[in-house]
Write a protein that binds this DNA or RNA. Structure first.
Lengths: 366, 366
DNA sequence: TTGAAAGCGCTAACAA
DNA sequence: TTGTTAGCGCTTTCAA
């Protein structure tokens, strides 16, 4: 593909290849202006485009970075993370090799080898859910971990993760501030693969409750699979609780589960947030904002994490090599959180209904 | 990064670099078995990993392909397309450079230059919506077009796109087969950037109607923006039609609009599919399957298109260089399509209700 | 059956 | 101010 070489430019300009290299790389300012112009003119005239391969080989720096991710197709978050990383790579004239391993360790190993063979200047290892990266993938030292953190005791890997504890706290605080005291946490199911995020959010939830002097009621901590159905079933269990234990607000592990909670609530002809407030997590594109009512939720800073990772990979930003950087999860306020119904709890204020537009369901369906 | 060289292996094995190269590349079978073993042992002993850079420079083939896409972050489809392309690249030991241009022509040009400089073996240009690629991006000949097609008269670019005409036909056929005769098409808004897909689906819709002997009623062809809100507003307009013109089925340009139609329908205490059948398009992850009831829709074959593109890029599959390959959009049957209500139309069969689980809304909200 | 050597296209130390 | 030249690490022709 790259046909015309530097020697062609040299010939065309009537100078040596050294001179061409010097002016095209803007080094050696002592080359006369006249020569510089001549070289540049010749270069464009012959349509010269330096070979990144040859340059990389010679310089031993390729301006290339490898990005290994475990799952790209199956998660809606991949895009924003990639976009963040891409944007800073491009701004710094680096190209990125993307390889998706589908969480297969063998593929992972092969990818690391292939990328090393390409002499990438840096490596980023991205997980699609906040987790610990297992010790059995042998990442080169200095690999930047994106949305995952090294196992305990493993050092030499900078890493960025969402601050899920604080996110869980923020969500809960939002509900407490609205006046709720019976706040449920619809958690993801217990499993071997339970994401770090789940426990962190739970910690945040509990801390805020404690801080607010609200006793922790274990019946309000339920589990489900992370899907519409899982959220719906968990919410149903909550709604089946005796009247005076029933929550007036639900904090859902993610937006998909929150949509399930919507369905469960509407199926009982209850209103959001009139009867029950809901807060989700993820701010998932095309989902959170398009619920009825639009879902208040906590955003995951994927784009920013992608940027951060690429910045430290390129050495632009100093990320302490052993630090795991926690990135803030902002709360996105929409319309699914309001005060609890007037007849419940103690700290309720009277309020005129602020949400006139509401759909409600009449037929329970279980 | 790549420290140990072929000469180190040669030294360790007590042979020349030629021999090492020959055995490691499995060429020249006349090398004695004994030597081969010794070389391989030496290679692993010293931890040798060939430099892809040096090899690429020498061979003038890099086993590398560039994938330029216009939008990656903002669409939920990117992942599946990338996954398809990735999978075949990996199976063929190629690495892929991913660059997202955000639809910026200048960035696009820069990307093409950079990728060319890297001497990628092939280039894929992916659009995130089925469209014509504008003539002002100067793609190298042979670039394969993914989810887009060359402008009329432009040749030399293999291309894959979804068969949207047939998809639109399939959707309509589904509704006709269920017994509907008043079938609306909720189209995307007219605009300069109107995707090819919109017109193609419309053609399919009209063709099937004609075929079925159903007169085309222009009132049933409405437009909206491609979002929940757009779908809802369009559906509302349809529902406002006088009783005997009101559609009993709606074919929506995409799933997001279909969810809007759900909201509009439920807000009038109507049932899906009891009163109105809905069919979407896209089979959007986490959306279509998680509606209540789960949405029947047409899937976009993104994964397969990604595979196809990479296959022709790598020369594994013969895609006629000037052909635009149409890929089938399968119908995904779920629960949002049923027969029209018994009291309407002529060709209705009596049927016991097959959908007992249904939520319905009691409060109109506009 | 194996090795010497040229060269892919570039950069940079050194020389002029 | 500019040019010669030695590699970067590999593959491959040609010779032995």
């Amino acid at each position: 593909m790259a046909r015309v070489r530097i020697s062609d430019v040299a010939a065309a300009a009537g100078v040596s290849v050294t001179t061409v290299s010097l002016v095209l790389n803007d080094v050696e300012s002592r080359i006369s202006q006249e020569t510089r112009d001549r070289v540049r003119a010749a270069a464009t005239a012959v349509g010269y485009e330096p070979s990144a391969l040859a340059r990389g080989l010679r310089r031993q720096r390729t301006k290339t970075v490898g990005l290994i991710s475990d799952q790209i197709a199956t998660t809606p978050f991949a895009g924003r993370m990639l976009a963040g990383a891409q944007d800073v790579a491009r701004a710094n004239e680096h190209l990125v090799f993307l390889v998706d391993t589908g969480s297969d360790t063998e593929v992972e190993e092969a990818a690391i080898r292939a990328l090393t063979a390409q002499q990438v200047d840096a490596l980023i290892y991205a997980a699609m859910w906040h987790r610990v990266v297992s010790a059995d993938v042998s990442l080169p030292a200095g690999t930047v971990l994106l949305d995952c953190r090294p196992a305990d005791g493993v050092v030499g890997f900078p890493s960025v993760v969402p601050d899920d504890r604080e996110g869980g706290a923020a969500a809960t605080r939002e509900l407490v501030a609205a006046g709720h005291t019976r706040i449920a946490y619809i958690d993801t199911a217990e499993a071997a693969t339970r994401p770090l995020a789940a426990d962190l959010r739970l910690q945040g939830y509990r801390a805020v409750l404690a801080e607010a002097g609200i006793a922790i009621d274990d019946r309000l901590h339920v589990h489900g699979e992370t899907s519409h159905r899982g959220g719906r079933e968990a919410a149903d269990r909550l709604l089946d609780l005796p009247e005076h234990h029933r929550p007036t607000a639900m904090f859902c592990f993610n937006d998909r589960m929150a949509t399930g909670a919507y369905t469960a609530i509407h199926a009982r002809a209850l209103q959001i947030p009139g009867d029950i407030s809901i807060i989700g997590y993820d701010d998932q594109q095309f989902i959170a904002a398009e619920q009825d009512p639009p879902l208040t939720t906590i955003a995951l800073p994927h784009y920013e994490m992608g940027r951060w990772a690429m910045e430290v990979a390129l050495g632009i930003r100093e990320g302490g090599v052993d630090a795991v950087h926690q990135m803030e999860c902002p709360v996105i306020r929409r319309d699914s959180v309001g005060p609890p119904p007037a007849h419940v709890g103690k700290q309720n204020r009277r309020r005129t209904s602020q949400h006139t537009e509401r759909s409600l369901s009449a037929t329970p369906d279980r």
